[in-house]
Write a protein that binds this DNA or RNA. Sequence first.
DNA 1: AGGCAAGGTTTACGTATGTAAAAAAGGGAG
DNA 2: CTCCCTTTTTTACATACGTAAACCTTGCCT
Lengths: 345, 345
Amino acid sequence: MSKPRINTMEELSVAIGVSRPTLSRFFQDPSLLKAKTVARIEAGLAGVEYVPNFFATRLNRKSTGMIGVIIPYLNDLFFTKLLASVESAAMQAGMTVITQCSHSDPAIEARAAETFMSMSVDGAIVAPLGDQSDKAVHLRLRSRLPFVLMDSRPSTMPDVDYVGSDHDQSTGLMTDYLCRVGEPPIFLAMPRVNFNALEREKAYIARMRHLGFDPVVLGAGLIRENWHFEEHGEAVLEAEFSQGRLTDRSIFCANDRVAIGAIRAAARHGLVPGRAAWGGLRIAGHDDYPLCPFLNPALTTVAQDTDAIGRQAVSRILEIIRGEVADEVPEITLFDGQLKLRESA
Amino acid sequence: MSKPRINTMEELSVAIGVSRPTLSRFFQDPSLLKAKTVARIEAGLAGVEYVPNFFATRLNRKSTGMIGVIIPYLNDLFFTKLLASVESAAMQAGMTVITQCSHSDPAIEARAAETFMSMSVDGAIVAPLGDQSDKAVHLRLRSRLPFVLMDSRPSTMPDVDYVGSDHDQSTGLMTDYLCRVGEPPIFLAMPRVNFNALEREKAYIARMRHLGFDPVVLGAGLIRENWHFEEHGEAVLEAEFSQGRLTDRSIFCANDRVAIGAIRAAARHGLVPGRAAWGGLRIAGHDDYPLCPFLNPALTTVAQDTDAIGRQAVSRILEIIRGEVADEVPEITLFDGQLKLRESA
DNA sequence: AGGCAAGGTTTACGTATGTAAAAAAGGGAG
DNA sequence: CTCCCTTTTTTACATACGTAAACCTTGCCT
């Protein structure tokens, strides 16, 4: 019942009665052939089990049609959203995306980079780890193939193509809002797993100073460098609330997952953050994690435009691949954040 | 300053002064060579920029050392946890994982399968879509290479290797618990995006009958086939609560994301689910989504052992790859769920 | 010194396809 | 019917490495 299996183009050519080079052209671009020939090949193909060999195909081509993406961490909906956006844009451009997750381990990140070079991907989009990232790996990758950083970047690589959010703007936006309608906020820092952590902290401090308030950063001391953000947020605020401190303050969390932990800590102490709530406690986040609207209370936050970031990263890497860029002129694209006013602040 | 770039093994062999076949053996297994030779090659390699060509390497090998994984949806922490577990197990076995997400689109799933066949992955682990999945695609993949289904499976493929949770057990566990300490639960169904949705529903009904209670399934009518689970849970219960119905009942949600929406709906009506709470409303979930402990109230649920599932899927595919199995004897491995008693029920 | 074994080198062929150039076939117009 | 143009086939070579067999070194042992 099953179709006869054919392993090589050679076999296929005798089975269909068309020459192998013609088949080769057919698989690359059927429009190069006469409609009649195309029909004949397609008919033959329908009665047969054949898949062209990926490796042989790419071996002797200039372009592999693949773009490699490295993300630092999988169990975070922010990165999955970003990845989905990248994949969608790449697919639309006819590219195959190879994703590797570095699992917050520099060694794995390096191995992924090695794999990409070995596979001659047409370009690489990398969301780096923080200081742990081996800069030499990024530089080596960049020297070998089109390369763009995404989501966060080291301050030591200011001259590399980069697509991300404007954290001065987004953090400023939220700081402004919180100052305008209530007590100036305290900043609840996040683990320093990437460069954004520090960038947002700095942006908050700068904005507060600009507004004439004293910045206060919380939780920077006991920050462990891991991805258990909720735990971190809860632990820091639990320590405060249990001493009766901060129960009527405004708390701006470095990201939504920290804020989720913060809200949890508040709940354990019978506190309900939110403008209308009794007591004056407010909690805000950053990123617009998909679950924000469903939290209790719904989390006020500032959204990163992950869709735009993903699309722009792909669009930029395609430009570089196609050589449509002046060399040595890296492009930095920053997207604005958008205020999402909900219940918690 | 940068090292001279070398593109082929041939070039490398003249640069180092070792024959190409020797280099080939070096890259595959240095232990085949004398320590002195290995040292010489490594020294040469250190002064040079060379990465073996992935495609050429795999072209003429029997094994590619890759295993392909298809997951249906990225923006769900359950699948990312599962994927992380698979990747970790595969890496430990020295395999490279190629992940493709079908984005809940059968066409993309088919394309991913095609890619895997084309790349001659050593085996494929597939978490299928629901009824939309093209069964022919799975069967074709299975006929070509080692294949195991993961997480959910169609009832029409009972004779295929499968690793997942025992939903009769897990759903029964929660049903038992809810019946024992309170009002028999209503079941809040989830969108039918995969086969687990229906399987859990059936398991609930069977267990309720067995306990002598009348099963009641909610939300099965307005189920849209998409992954907006939280929205679904909130909408269904909003409709009930706003009519004053179900406010003192036990509600067993088909998964945690539905439960998150359910809790949200409750909160909007001033209801706080939980055993100790006033009113008697209880809400429970399924899966142990990573955020469960941080919800307000913390969600009582039954955990799937994603780590075991991922490891077993890899371990099984490796068995098949190595031919350590009697043919035609598919293995079905189901892991037990574990009750996670928290606050909401 | 001669014999022997281990490790390396040479040589040659295989892998499945891309690609280019020359030769042949086909089809339409005059 | 013949010429010309387009499409396809033929032929040949390229891609980067795996693999096997025969040959050559080297060093050790007797």
